[in-house]
C-alpha cells in the first residue's frame, strides 16, 4: 500500500504522525512525505528581486522545509519502524502538485491535515485540502488536531429531533 503524506507545517505534521502511530500498517506499506513550496527559488526570480535579503529568505524557507521533512520522516520511522519512507520537497501550486504526485505514484491513500486550529476556523477545511479531497482519485484521510475535551459538550447541542434505533450489539 502506498501512502502519500502532505506535511504542511510542524503542528499538523506531528498530528499526522501521531495518528499514524495509532494504526497498524502492513510491512509492505510505503510512506512518501511531501512539502509543497509555492515558489521556486530560481536564479531568475532572485535576480528579479535584486534583493539579497529576499534571496536569503527564500533559501531559509527551503532549508526550513527540508528540515521539517527530515524531522517528520524520523518521527514516522520511530512509530512505524518497519516501513519504507521517502521525503521530497516540491515546487508549485499545492493542489495541482499534490494531484500530480498522487497520479505519478499511484498512491492508495493521501493523508493531509485539516486546517483551522481554534474557534470558528476549526470548522473550516483549507481550500487546498477540500479541493484535493474532492478531486483525488484515491481515498483521503483528513487528520484533525485533538480537540480539547471541554469544548465537546458546549457544541454538541445542535440539531434535529433524534431517535436512535439500536440494531444489535455484540463483541467478538
Amino acid at each position: 500500500m502506498k501512502v502519500i503524506i502532505e506535511i504542511e507545517d510542524r503542528i499538523y505534521g506531528e498530528a499526522i504522525v501521531n495518528f499514524i502511530a495509532t494504526q497498524k500498517w502492513d510491512s509492505g506499506t510505503s510512506f512518501e512525505l511531501f512539502h509543497v513550496l509555492d515558489r521556486e527559488p530560481t536564479g531568475e526570480l532572485i535576480s528579479e528581486l535584486c534583493c539579497p535579503t529576499a534571496a536569503d529568505l527564500i533559501e531559509q524557507e527551503k532549508t526550513a522545509a527540508q528540515e521539517l521533512l527530515v524531522e517528520m520522516e524520523l518521527k514516522l520511522l520511530k512509530v512505524v519502524p518497519n516501513v519504507a519512507t521517502e521525503q521530497k520537497l516540491i515546487y508549485g501550486r499545492p493542489k495541482e502538485k499534490l494531484l500530480e504526485v498522487i497520479e505519478d505514484t499511484k498512491a492508495d491513500l493521501l493523508i493531509v491535515g485539516s486546517h483551522g486550529r481554534t474557534g470558528f476556523t476549526r470548522f473550516l477545511l483549507g481550500s487546498v485540502s477540500m479541493a484535493v479531497l474532492s478531486q483525488a482519485p484515491c481515498s483521503v484521510l483528513i487528520v484533525k488536531l485533538p480537540q480539547k475535551a471541554n469544548t465537546n459538550s458546549a457544541q454538541q447541542q445542535r440539531t434535529d429531533k433524534e431517535t436512535n434505533v439500536p440494531v444489535a450489539s455484540a463483541t467478538k
Binding site: 440539531t159 429531533k161 434505533v165 439500536p166 440494531v167 444489535a168 455484540a170
Partner: peptide
C-alpha cells in the same frame, strides 16, 4: 478481535453522524 455494534439514527444526516462521533 474488534468490538462491533451498530445503530440506526434518525434526523439530519451530517448532524447525527457528527453528534454520534462526539
Amino acid at each position: 478481535h474488534a468490538k462491533v455494534f451498530a445503530e440506526v439514527l434518525q434526523g439530519g444526516v451530517v448532524g447525527r453522524i457528527v453528534a454520534k462521533a462526539k
